[in-house]
């Protein structure tokens, strides 16, 4: 059953059509890849799905427990509230805050006390804050960051910042997780570790994952199905085997050997 359906989605910036007439279907529980050359429109597609940009035309339908809803054009916090979380290609952590605070902030949308109780720190406050800290630490343990919870996000090494981005996205309790080049800047060992981590969190949190990745080997190894974007258009969609032998994909990646991956 599709958890997300994208219909004829288009986004133009002035004369440039970054995403053009895209159709997509993501099934529940899938680990899906989204690949394409630099500037193909992958990040723009994420920005459309998460409400950072409003689509020029087209439809995005997301299935929650309450049923199917059109979410195109909704504000990002509302889309997050429905269960779509993301990481950013250009890491956007709350740099001057601690690792723990980064995760706690992402739990805010489910907080069970109001602004007025925050003035007096009542019983509700104590109970909720304790719960948030415990849950945050659990997430940090999964991502191997629990020992660094008091460090400033800015002081983490690059790879750990990417992990923290994932922890923060998970803290919003999503059903669909969008990862924008999570392995960028990582060495091969870190990338291997990341692959098993992604598989683990999918099981642990019952997630559907859409993954943008530049590293072909990572995508071919991890993803069950792959969409290929080129100049804003979907040019292919299929299993890693099918994608590797697709003529148009090979053309799009002219110069890069797909089969080498």
């Amino acid at each position: 059953m599709p958890i997300l359906t994208v219909e004829k989605l288009t986004k133009s910036f002035g004369g440039l059509t970054a995403v053009s007439n895209v159709n997509m279907e993501i099934n529940e529980g899938e680990l899906l890849g989204l690949i394409g050359p630099n500037g193909a429109g992958k990040t723009t597609l994420f920005n459309l799905l998460t409400g950072v940009y409003v689509p020029t035309t087209g439809k995005i339908v997301f299935r929650t427990k309450k049923g199917e809803e059109s979410i195109q054009g909704l504000r990002p916090y509302k889309i997050c509230g429905k269960g779509i979380a993301r990481t950013f290609q250009n890491i956007r952590l709350f740099k001057n805050l601690t690792v723990l605070d980064n995760v706690r902030i992402a739990m805010h949308k489910d907080i069970q006390y109001g602004i007025f109780s925050s003035f007096v720190h009542g019983l509700r406050y104590n109970k909720e804050e304790k719960k948030i800290v415990e849950e945050s630490i659990k997430l940090l343990e999964i991502l191997g960051l629990d020992k660094k919870k008091e460090e400033l996000a800015n002081n983490l090494p690059y790879g750990e910042q990417r992990h923290l981005e994932i922890a923060r996205a998970l803290a919003t309790n999503p059903s669909l997780l969008l990862l924008d080049e999570p392995a960028a800047g990582m060495n091969p060992a870190e990338t291997t570790e990341l692959i098993s981590l992604i598989r683990h969190i999918r099981e642990e949190f019952n997630l559907t994952i859409l993954l943008i990745e530049h590293d072909m080997s990572l995508v071919m190894q991890t993803c069950e199905r792959i969409y290929v974007l080129d100049y804003g258009k979907i040019i292919a969609n299929g299993t890693p085997e099918q994608i590797k032998s697709d003529k148009r994909v090979i053309e799009a990646y002219l110069g890069e050997d797909v089969n080498n991956a």
């Binding site: 504000r75 990002p76 605070d101 992402a106 739990m107 907080i111 602004i115 803290a171 919003t172």
Partner: peptide, 20 residues
């Protein structure tokens, strides 16, 4: 949590909004 939401806005408004 409400105060942290405010601080998150100062740190990165787009990320804050994307985190709900």
């Amino acid at each position: 949590s409400h105060g942290r939401a405010c601080i998150a806005i100062r740190e990165d408004e787009i990320a804050a909004e994307a985190m709900g």
